[in-house]
């Protein structure tokens, strides 16, 4: 197994861990962290698999840079939304509780 392939498998573990977290965890910040874990895992797999195949591959490295920027944009937007949601609703999860009955 080459080091690149090892990265790919590490990415796989990260992706699955993140997937479990984003479904199982309630707290919005934890969900967001889990999303970032999934994202890092995906990028590691993208680079690891491609470099295992091609050697150093500038194309996937550029793709991952683009992917990171997109992930940063999404994370920052989610943080702004979460913080404002917390401020207005006083809640850190999307779960409904008894006080929500009758509201849309």
């Amino acid at each position: 197994m080459t080091p690149d392939l090892f990265y790919a498998f590490t990415g796989l573990v990260l992706f699955i861990t993140g997937l479990f977290g984003i479904i199982a965890l309630q707290h919005l910040l934890r969900k967001l962290l889990a999303f970032n874990l999934m994202g890092s895992g995906t990028f590691l797999m993208l680079v690891g698999l491609a470099q295992h195949r091609n050697g150093t591959d500038p194309v996937v490295q550029a793709l991952v840079l683009t992917g990171i920027v997109v992930a940063i944009a999404a994370t920052a937007l989610a943080l702004v939304l979460i913080r404002r949601y917390y401020h207005l609703a006083g809640r850190v999860s999307l779960e409904r509780d008894a006080t929500d009955e009758g509201r849309p």
């Binding site: 500038p58 194309v59 490295q61 550029a62 793709l63 683009t66 920027v69 997109v70 944009a73 999404a74």
Partner: peptide, 24 residues
């Protein structure tokens, strides 16, 4: 090479990526 891919070969990706940042 990475700069070449980002800003020449696949510059359309980068243009849209900056769009995503601006949207956020």
């Amino acid at each position: 090479p990475i700069t070449a891919v980002l800003l020449n070969f696949r510059s359309y990706d980068t243009l849209l990526e900056i769009g995503v940042l601006v949207i956020a």
